[in-house]
Nucleic acid binder design. Sequence first.
RNA 1: CGGGGCGUGGCGCAGCUGGUAGCGCGCGAAGUUUGGGACUUCGAUGCCGCAGGUUCGAAUCCUGUCGCUCCGACCA
Length: 578
Amino acid sequence: MKLEKLVGDRFKERPSDCLVESHTFMVRGGYLKSVANGIFSSYMPLKRITRKIEQILREEMDAVDGQEVQFPVVMPASLWQESGRYESIGKEMARFNDRSGSPLVLGMTHEEAAVQLVRDYGQTYSKYPFMIYQIQTKFRDEARPRAGLIRVREFTMKDAYSFHTSQEDLEKYYEKCHKAYERIYARAGLPEVVSVASDSGMMGGSVSHEFMLLTPIGEDSIVLCEECDYRANMEAAECILQNQRDEISEALTMVHTPDIHTIEDVCAFLHCETKTSCKAVVYQRNSDDSYVVLFIRGDLEVNETKLTNYLGGDVHPAVITEDCGLQAGYIGPVGLENKNLTVLFDCSLEGLNNLSCGANKEEYHYTGLDMTRDVAHAEYHDFAKIQQGGICPHCGKPAITISRGIEVGNIFQLGTKYTKTMGMTYDDQNGETKYPIMGCYGIGVGRLAAAICEAHHDEHGPIWPLAVAPWQVHLCAVRADDADVKAYADKLYEELQNKGLEVIYDDRKVSAGVMFSDADLLGVPYRVIVSPRNCKQGQVEIVSRDKAFSETASMDTAAEEIAKILAAATEEARQILK
RNA sequence: CGGGGCGUGGCGCAGCUGGUAGCGCGCGAAGUUUGGGACUUCGAUGCCGCAGGUUCGAAUCCUGUCGCUCCGACCA
């Protein structure tokens, strides 16, 4: 490919809406163009990258006996009504009607389609296990797309679905897929991706893992232990506390606290720390707007996912009205005898004494609250967000750190949620009718490309790992107006292509600065420089994009040398994988 | 869904106490340059997001609307 003919502009200035490096470089380097909020077209360089990523995905899925299939993008609402998700999923799913008025949806995930595809086939145990996968466009009407390809509305995803006749078999296969995922990230140049235990959210099921690239620009919070290998999604991390009770319990005393509402204000007023207070966090159930009051230690935050899981339904922050029986800013556990309230207590309060709390009376708080004495009936559950420096649920050491990460894939043990609702059954050896157990496994292709860029770049542009780079060699003819340079570079271009290498060839009559800047933006791992200076010495320069490698080769044997270097690099990558 | 910000050539921006648009980059031509985004000269490119309103006159003021974006909520 001649760079001169490559469609798409490269430019110097950072567009104002690009806030992360991957987005900036992909826009500046002519990789993509925004079409609408969270919807992009790809130019050739990005298309070549995603094609290579997809090929890696195919190979690794095939290696775990996956069969590539293809589900439709557009599906009838009836298919989603079978699983119940037509109703349970909100505005994230795009819905429309066809000409006859029949409701349709755009696929945002394909569990239903997968079950539909195989439920007639999988009627006997002898057909199991099997796995099907596709690489397909998904549309999710995200509330807030952001950061270029990191979070978009339309994207390509590899999604896989496995079907099993026993939990043990699923678990065995799940483990295989976990390893396959590790290989995928390693091959794509992101061996640093870690898997974390996660909350499975709307997908249902129990065990799941998210694969995370740790980076400050990530959207998810991840809990890591510095002392052991414990890793978890923020939502799933158990919060363990060692509650320290004072020896002497003071008496419960009402204190006048005019115009003081927040925990910080109350504690400042009472000259105590927020961790010696009991705060109330009020929610309402989405289903019926009934109130849920959660008491938690003043310095901690509520993990709403834990709360949702405990309640078995979604909640939203409460709107406290005059007549709901709650004194906003003065809610406390003592004397809160309200009929229609669900009152919950976080473990962080268990056994504590000498706390401050609201008195359920306007402008009054209590001091000297003793949970054991004053709130004897309380049951304690874990609703708290784990904190930096918190206690690791695995090793028990106070070595928890919280990092940000980009989710570049995830795997779920789905169980029978979809096979049950959609009536997929098989007969086992004993002639008993059973529901197959499912697993599912997803990787977003574009997001992975963005994550690679995020992890591998310098101030000038991306540094694509060889396995996913849009081209393998970037041939620069510096001073292409020089006849010797041009003639030799043309010849070398020809030779490299004949050796089966992927070459982007820049023979534009532009200054070296422009040429190198463009090469930096395209991030091709090996750069070959032909110039008058080099020609005079009978040599060409071969340098790697990451500057780790730089050597010269004779003009006569340059093509062979380059091919050798690439072969060696490919082989090295293969060795590392083992 | 809540709260901010912004819509002016392809990109980045100025103009916004009203008088019909300007700068830098990029683009085209000519020439001088040539190993990290060169220089000079000339040139092209704008329904100033859209629709109303105020006014003799609107990029500028008012109203509405659409779009983009950031923070939060939500989230396979």
